[in-house]
Simulated assay, not measured.
Amino acid sequence: MATAPPPTGDTGDTDCVLDLGGLDALVQVLRSRGRTVVGPTVRDDAIVLAELESATELPYGWGVELDGGHYRLVRRTDRAAFAHSAGPQSWKNHLLPQRVRQWSADRGPDGELRVLSDRHEPGRYAFLGVRPCDLRAIAIQDRVLLGDRHRDDAYGARRTGAFLIAVECTEPGGTCFCVSMDAGPAAGPGYDIALTEVLDEAGHRFLARAGTPEGADVLAGLPRRAADSATRRTAAGAVESAAARMGRTMPTADLRTLLADSLDATRWNDVAARCLTCGNCTMACPTCFCTTTEDVTDLTGDHAERWSRWDSCYDLDFSSLHGGPVRESGRSRYRQWLTHKLGTWHDQFGSSGCVGCGRCIVWCPVGIDLTEEAHALHQEARAKDRPA
């Protein structure tokens, strides 16, 4: 049985500074230890997550312009490697793949059916550039998928083997609201190594600290120097500045209570008139975890396979019972997604299911903004409480 990864945090080791050569050495050391390094790189007019052979493949000098239903790469005036916010993919794509075969079955010449369970060896990944919001998202998925009642051992095996290198945010995007969800821009617990990028007159460098013994061991093998007070101050100031420049906010109300009390709000009709129920928000979300199974056969009927794949609460079949779908209207499906994400997730898993990354806003084809919807529901609730 796979076990949940142990909680991680600061080991108390002295922080250090890596230059650009040290960052590339980090990639090479991890590769020499048999890990596949995955990080951000520019491809197809977007910053995507892909295997890296060198730190030179990072998106130096690139930023992003984000808004509802809008994503665009923009050139920066500096050579920052991590001055961009969360892209279209999340680490969920590697820890909880979109489609996985569970078993296959073949009918032999004697007519006997032989079933073979798929047992894939989990890859040894090193994730470079994990944003604090995504670090929180991984922790949320750990609670969901490694809980006692409905444990996903395949996820557990992938998660236990993953080495996480967090990068604190110094440049929030136009749709970011991690501060409202207490998920950034500083890195919380869960990392093996945390980096903060610094660019000033003293040069281009990264303040690094270890969060686990393995992280400390990796840092010990890199060309580095002791951290100086100026680098620490600049790094801390950059993160504090990012916290003050979030592109979006959530209302200060208790969201769990707000959503529970807003099931009959008229605002749902407004969003239903715009929502295409395409499910893009759930596919881009780093915490949405719903899956379904599908069975397929070949034309002879002698070979069959069962696959697990991502599913979405926007799919009509998602809530289909013998009498038809439970949530037939677009209104009810959007309401289910938002109330679960911000409200009833607390009842199931002890926290919100949202980390403030803003992906659902960016990748909604009609630009629906869940922060705008939350504020609208809050205003409607306040209006009802006012005396006539």
Rank of each mutant, 00 (worst) to 15 (best):
residue 89 Q to R: 15
residue 234 T to Q: 06
residue 270 D to P: 01
residue 111 G to L: 07
residue 243 A to G: 15
residue 158 R to F: 10
residue 111 G to P: 08
residue 114 R to L: 06
residue 344 T to H: 13
residue 316 L to D: 00
residue 294 E to D: 11
residue 383 A to W: 13
residue 32 S to R: 15
residue 182 D to T: 07
residue 362 V to Q: 07
residue 20 L to H: 02
residue 137 A to Q: 00
residue 139 A to E: 12
residue 230 A to D: 12
residue 268 W to T: 09
residue 244 A to D: 11
residue 381 A to G: 06
residue 200 D to P: 09
residue 224 R to N: 06
residue 303 H to G: 01
residue 115 V to W: 05
residue 280 N to Q: 14
residue 359 R to Q: 11
residue 34 G to K: 10
residue 9 G to H: 12
residue 23 L to R: 00
residue 173 G to E: 06
residue 162 A to K: 10
residue 287 T to H: 08
residue 345 W to R: 03
residue 149 R to N: 08
residue 134 D to C: 04
residue 89 Q to N: 10
residue 314 Y to C: 09
residue 157 A to W: 08
residue 153 D to V: 11
residue 77 T to Y: 02
residue 136 R to A: 13
residue 308 S to F: 06
residue 300 T to I: 08
residue 90 S to H: 12
residue 345 W to S: 02
residue 264 D to E: 15
residue 113 L to D: 03
residue 337 W to S: 05
residue 156 G to E: 08
residue 3 T to S: 14
residue 195 L to A: 04
residue 202 A to Y: 07
residue 268 W to R: 12
residue 4 A to M: 12
residue 259 L to H: 10
residue 200 D to K: 11
residue 106 D to F: 13
residue 28 Q to W: 01
residue 169 C to K: 09
residue 10 D to N: 13
residue 236 A to Y: 00
residue 247 G to C: 06
residue 66 L to W: 08
residue 78 D to Y: 04
residue 325 P to N: 14
residue 20 L to K: 04
residue 173 G to S: 06
residue 84 H to G: 06
residue 77 T to M: 05
residue 376 A to L: 04
residue 303 H to W: 09
residue 388 A to R: 14
residue 14 T to I: 00
residue 105 A to P: 00
residue 72 R to E: 15
residue 286 P to F: 07
